[in-house]
Computed example of a mutant assay.
Amino acid sequence: MRETVIVGAVRTPVGKRNGGLAGQHAADLSAVVLNELAARTGIDLEIVDDVVWGCVSQVGDQSSNIGRFAVLAAGWPESIPGTTVNRACGSSQQALDFAVHAVMSGQQDVVVAGGVEVMSRVPLGSARASGMPYGPKVLARYDDFSFNQGISAELIAQKWGLSRTQLDEFSARSHERAAAALDSGAFEDQIVFVSTEVGAVTADEGVRRGTTVEKLAGLKPAFLDDGMIHAGNSSQISDGAAALLVMTAEKARSLGLTPLVRYVAGVVTGADPVLMLTGPIPATAKLLTKAAVGIDDIGVFEVNEAFASVPLAWQAETGADPAKLNPLGGAIALGHPLGASGAVLMTRMIHHMRDNNIRYGLQTMCEGGGTANATLVELVN
């Protein structure tokens, strides 16, 4: 197995629903990060063996292998292939795993991984418009199977005894941390500006400054009349793209590139498809065992904030230090552009590790259908 590193990580700002990125086609938005990745690393594009691209709603603008059309939109050589991955919200995290697997095994040497989602143009649930993807046998196997992740988030809150106040406190803290990160310039080195017909998008759009528990208390439950999950403690509908450059450590040295992090280990697990969003808990346990690393050895955790109950249940089960959990805010404040989110979180985490000399970073993502990815990377000094 060859030592595999990430030498470049870049993302667009995350646009809010119908915000600054809403007019961008997914292929064109992908092209922005692909070209920025190439510019920052200075690589000869001819050495890129493949582009593995995550996307969830592969219909309409995002259909017909958006990974390949991202390559063509970027003006890259026609000889560079591209493929599209769908593991629900973990699509671009899985894209990274697939890229690493190819490089580690020796089948390929240089692979780009990443993803895109423009939810303003291709709304969540678009793929269900022409049919029922679960099928009668799945529905027969799970009598209480829900298509709605919000219901799953409610069930998690109930199972772990989480109160609405706890959920709202976590959500307010996400906005507070994200605002502080924006103000400190923590995202500047990882973001590429996106030029649009109405002006440049230069920063994440979803942060709501001054969010408080008191303000969130006034929001009505979104999924159950007497529920705890509402718009303010759920991830935002968003637009965005991100890209990572993967190669062997030896290849990086030969090209004069400085690795950002070393890929240590990655896992994917299945879990209860009714609770659906608890997968990060067993995925984290499996990853730590595989890597022979303890939870206290990790300096930063990126646990996707699909709903506030997800990272809170994960924290309760793992015993992770809450100060290390999503220190720059998460999807509740910064948005969740589905197919791009895995690569967005990894980009955010890598740069945070570099800025703060953090050795280990762990990223995990809950996913529709009850699966979850978890990835461990190590800072390269």
Rank of each mutant, 00 (worst) to 15 (best):
V5R: 00
I6Y: 03
T12D: 04
G15V: 08
R17W: 13
R17T: 11
G20H: 02
A26S: 15
D28Y: 10
A31P: 02
V32Q: 04
N35K: 13
E36G: 13
A38V: 15
I47C: 04
I47Y: 00
V52C: 10
V52K: 01
W53G: 03
V56K: 06
S57I: 13
G60N: 11
Q62P: 03
Q62K: 04
S64D: 15
V71F: 00
V71N: 01
A74F: 02
T84W: 07
R87Q: 11
R87V: 04
R87Y: 01
C89P: 02
M104C: 13
M104A: 14
S105L: 10
G106N: 02
Q108R: 14
V112T: 01
A113E: 00
V116L: 05
E117Q: 13
M119C: 09
V122W: 04
L124T: 14
S126Q: 08
G131A: 06
D144T: 15
D144K: 14
F145H: 09
F147K: 12
N148A: 11
A153S: 11
L155Q: 12
I156A: 08
A157T: 08
Q158Y: 14
W160A: 07
R164V: 11
T165C: 12
S174N: 09
R177G: 07
A180S: 12
A181H: 06
A186Q: 10
V192E: 03
F193L: 14
V194Y: 01
T196L: 07
V198A: 15
A200W: 11
V201L: 10
V201N: 07
V201I: 11
T202K: 12
E205T: 05
G206Y: 03
V207H: 08
V207D: 06
T212G: 09
V213D: 10
A217T: 10
G218K: 15
A222T: 08
A222E: 07
G227R: 05
I229F: 05
G232Y: 05
S234N: 06
I237S: 04
I237N: 07
E250D: 15
K251Y: 00
K251V: 00
S254D: 15
G256W: 02
L257W: 04
T258Y: 05
L260H: 07
V261N: 00
A265E: 14
L275D: 09
G279Y: 01
G279W: 02
T284F: 08
K286Q: 14
L288W: 02
A291C: 11
I295F: 08
I295D: 06
D297N: 09
G299H: 10
F301E: 02
A306G: 08
F307A: 03
A308H: 07
P311N: 07
L312Y: 03
L312D: 02
T318S: 14
G319D: 08
G319Q: 05
L325E: 08
A331M: 04
L334R: 03
G335E: 04
G335D: 03
G335M: 08
L338W: 04
S341A: 13
V344I: 15
M346Y: 05
T347C: 08
M349A: 09
I350K: 02
I350Y: 01
M353F: 09
R354C: 10
D355T: 14
N356A: 10
N357Q: 15
I358P: 04
T364I: 03
G370R: 00
N373P: 13
A374P: 02
T375R: 06
